[in-house]
Amino acid sequence: MKAAAGKVAQLLVVMFLVSLGTFSLTSLMPGDPAVAILGDNQSPEAYAELRDKLGLNEPLVERYFTWLGHVFQGDLGTSMVPPNEDVTSLIGSAFAVSIELAVLALVVALVVSIPLAMISARRPDGLLDRAASATTFGIMSVPSFVSGLVLIALLVNQLHLFPRVGWVGVTDGLGQNLYHAALPVITIALLEIPTFTRVLRGDLVRTLQEDFVLSARAKGMPAWRIMIFDAFRPSSYSLITVLGLSLAQLIGSTVIVETLFSLPGMGRLVVSSASQGNITVIQGAVLVIAACYVLINAGVDLMYSVIDPRIRRVGA
């Protein structure tokens, strides 16, 4: 209980520092909400007046604490740029897209990489291991904007299998939602598959050399059964760590894929807000992303103790 309270306090401190840092950095950002709102055909006086109206001439510290006060009341404010939507609702919509993409991509990556890692680990340096290694290194060397463009060229422009752009929410139909999500999900999954495969394969190879595995083999248990029921669980710590980090990272950093497919996720929200100097949206979005990081990592810590009872005992 004490440890949990400490963890929560730690998380709050991290989020406070992140929000403070972000707010300070906004003064260095490109973009000007007054220009974004008024366009390029107004007098300098009109821009100055609007900046004043938006409170942009107030001292940074004063603006920060005003904003923080509202956050504690559950109010992330209103977007500075028309159509002046509620920031919480903007982030809610973008977050739903990003979390769906991230989770689906990780599921796809796990579905591919776990069997691949098991096949590779079964005979290290065997033909299949080498082939898998070569393939994953090959995929790893291709950045997402390249793989995305290749997929677009093949699956959209040539075969017309998927839509080029756009997003349909789950509430508008699961089938259409998955149809629009498929290509971005594959593009993101391609980034994760090599890492997951390499990490799990390495841990499996080490685990398969443990005494309890040798003992199981000596008892005549089938190799597939040993792999799945005995070796996989103790080999999955690193994979879980990487999975957690990837999930947190993907929520805010799939901007290239979101841009490529014109998806309204968190990455694109932050980038477009930054180019407009839309400070309230950036602040809210960064806060949510930071919260995701710390919560997911706390969740990963918790998972360790679920997987390995020894950690639970040490914690107690």
């Binding site: 090959g138 291709v142 390249v146 463009l149 422009n157 040539q158």
Partner: peptide, 23 residues
Amino acid sequence: KIRLLPVGVAATVAALVMMGCSN
């Protein structure tokens, strides 16, 4: 050799596919 080769192959294939498919 086996590890370096796929990098080049992947990049080449990607480039060729892009060249072949794009306008």
